[in-house]
Design a protein around this nucleic acid. Structure first.
Lengths: 144, 144
DNA sequence: TAATTTGTCTACTACTTCTATAGAGATTCT
DNA sequence: AGAATCTCTATAGAAGTAGTAGACAAATTA
């Protein structure tokens, strides 16, 4: 299960992607449009800023904007930034690898190989889907 | 991420599957063999008993045994019993479906369709892999 | 320069879930 | 009766989730 925080992050980024022609978008505007608690969203955007996905300007007429092109921001990476590994167990994660404590021997662990397949399948989907792909889906639905 | 509890449940069931010729296996034996805290395992086995995966006999010479054949117990179902839905969001789960609160409209939610693909890919793997399949993998490794 | 509008930072809180542990109780066998 | 087992209830610390409050810093502009 992904957290609400991760969903909020995705929604906020998708909103920013749709507003790409604009210089800056207010936190409060994103919060209102995507029904995200405003203060919670602030914290999420700070995280995304640290990760260099968005940038901000302070003061009057300030706001947020994307740093990277939405076609370069994968859903997988956004979820990783907020929730951590996509893998179902640490011992098959590439970026967050950690030996499982409760596993006596990784080489003969029956569960590990199976979970690796799950990880690979999940990453194959989420790491090849970008913000632009999601907004395209939405555009198609809206056109109907 | 799956919980330790789910991993323990899988390991305990795999152990029972390997001991199928025996009538009954002690909790303490499973705990020792699989390095699972004994009292914690007790609680897990009670859950699995409620789900009718295992059965138990009390008193002296008591213990646990599988109810179903290991070729009929899928990893997906074990994880669901312990951790709940395999789906990354409730709104794409089949058995635990629930509308996402933070989603204004399911029909136009950009994230939903993508997560459905993740769910389907995950379930395709975990619902078609049974305890016997995992023990076979292990047997092959041990033979080498 | 003072007021206003914005994002930033720190701290706190409430709730839930996770990972257990302790101990008395019930059941069965010998 | 006594020993070996599973069972049930209660408790608890740590971590994670989902926020909220309020002072602070920076930029604009009147």
């Amino acid at each position: 299960m992904i957290s609400k925080k991760a969903k909020y992050a995705l929604k906020a980024l998708l909103f920013l992607a749709k507003q790409q022609e604009r210089e800056l978008v207010l936190i409060s505007e994103i919060a209102a449009a995507e029904l995200i608690p405003r203060k919670f969203l602030e914290a999420i955007l700070v995280d995304l800023k640290v990760q260099q996905i968005v940038q901000s300007t302070r003061g009057k007429n300030g706001g947020y904007t994307l740093v990277k092109d939405p076609s370069q921001i994968s859903v997988g990476n956004v979820i990783r930034m907020v929730d951590g590994p996509l893998a179902p167990v640490h011992c098959v994660s590439h970026l967050y690898y950690r030996k499982c404590e409760e596993c006596a021997d990784e080489a003969t662990c029956e569960i590990r190989l199976l979970m690796k397949r799950v990880r690979d399948a999940t990453c194959a989907i989420l790491d090849t889907t970008f913000l632009t792909d999601l907004n395209k889906v939405n555009a198609l639905i809206v056109e109907e």
